[in-house]
Amino acid sequence: MIRRAWAVARKDMLIEFRSKVALNQVIPFALAVLLTFGFALDTRDRLLAEIAPGLFWVVVLFSSLYLISRSFRVERENSAMEGLVLYGVDPMAIFLGKLAALAVQMFVLEAVAAAGIAVLFNPPVGSLGLLAISAVAATLAIGSIGLVYGALSSSEHSGESLLPLLVIPVLAPIVISAAKCWSDAESAGTGIYDPWLKIVAIFSVVFLAVGAAAFGPAMED
């Protein structure tokens, strides 16, 4: 199963490598949103630095929705997902493979968005470790739930625009706790022994488990 999951992940990465949708469309979108926030909030440095963590996770969540949609759109062309199923690949392998590929793309997105925030809003950075670990945990949770709802809403018609409405409320706890982690990371304080990191980690494990359990029933008709 691991070998097949890896094949699926490799395939999704190759598709991104060939089409560069994440690189050419989604990441620039994230940067455009950051700039827009700068204009809308009138570049008051203190304010921007203060809201940077929340802003970051909102931008990451919204941009990830495009990546998730994309991840299912490539499967709908020529009914390719059906092809995977006919190779005898079980849903868990598809889930793990797609999650891995999605997570890699999200990490790149997050790195670019974080760099953008660092340059544009100039927030202080106390603990890089806390930033990184909480980002990994939150990314897995967003990806996992996103894939389940991507499968649930995938249909020939009208499904794609539904994805944000389904995913955003479910992931509210992740956005809250990840943003709190990043707020705490601005001020160094507790380092990676931050109480919010524990919360992000617990949520992330729960969402991963829910995602793994629900993806199969959601995918198979």
Binding site: K11, L14, I15, R18, S19, V74, E77, N78, S79, A80, E82, G83, L86
Partner: peptide, 8 residues
């Protein structure tokens, strides 16, 4: 349907 990935 061919089950092929168009981008690959």
């Amino acid at each position: 349907r061919s089950h092929l990935y168009e981008d690959l």
